[in-house]
Amino acid sequence: MSSIPVPTRLRDAFVPPLDRDGFRRGVRVMSTPGIAIAAWGLVTGVALVEGGLSAPKALVMTFVVFAGSAQLAVLPLLASGAPLAVVWITALLVNLRFVIFAAASRRFFTMLPWKQRLFSSYLNGDVGFAIFMQRYGHAPEAGTTEQWSFFFGTATVNWFSWQASSVAGILLGNLAPTSWGLELAAVLALVAVLTPMVNRVPAILGVIVTAALSIVTVRVPLKLGLLTSVVVGVIVAVIAEAKWPVRGGTDSATVEELSHGVGLDEEGYAP
């Protein structure tokens, strides 16, 4: 399937049968977004170190967690010594978009043995998901070798470009003097994740309510104010959506907003 040296038995347990052409097509389509992903990884790596993690810890985090937005979101919580339960719940909240991705794309994977399903789901990140659904979202037949091959092609590029650039960013951030104030980089990266998500009335209302509450409750111990603000904001957004429904269905809108706002043309290439 590829030149990556993995023992055959291990590969067969975790990777569905693939064909070379589909895999290469996935790699090719992902190569341009791969550059954007590398930029993200670089920024995230720098931000992790500037946010207070030592370089060795940041390296471990990158490989164990493999979810950039959640990593950046919990960074200030880790730095301020917040309870681990709050850290984990916050990451869970940021990662909830993956539940929607999983629900939307599972029909392509349900027929696979559980190990292959588990590994595929682990690789189902933001941009790869958007590109896969753009290409196969309306395919009449779900779960073909061509689709799996394409998926693993994009996922391979995604994983390597993310991890390699994260490592580079961590090493780079380790060199920069702290007086440069680069810890702002983490906040800026989160703003970039957030911005495409906030483009319709329900999301705007939810975010405004959350913002106001998070200021008011900033002195509540154990960061419980944070969790309360999120819950109330989400409830407000859901109520608002009942009043202002999303035009033309939520599927495509959701894909673009939640997957870092990656816009794709008809060929499946990101700009």
């Binding site: 916050t90 939810g206 959350t210 998070s214 957004a237």
Partner: peptide, 11 residues
């Protein structure tokens, strides 16, 4: 769908 945006805001 709205939880990630609200969580990022609260951070």
């Amino acid at each position: 769908r709205y939880a990630p945006a609200c969580a990022l805001t609260a951070i």
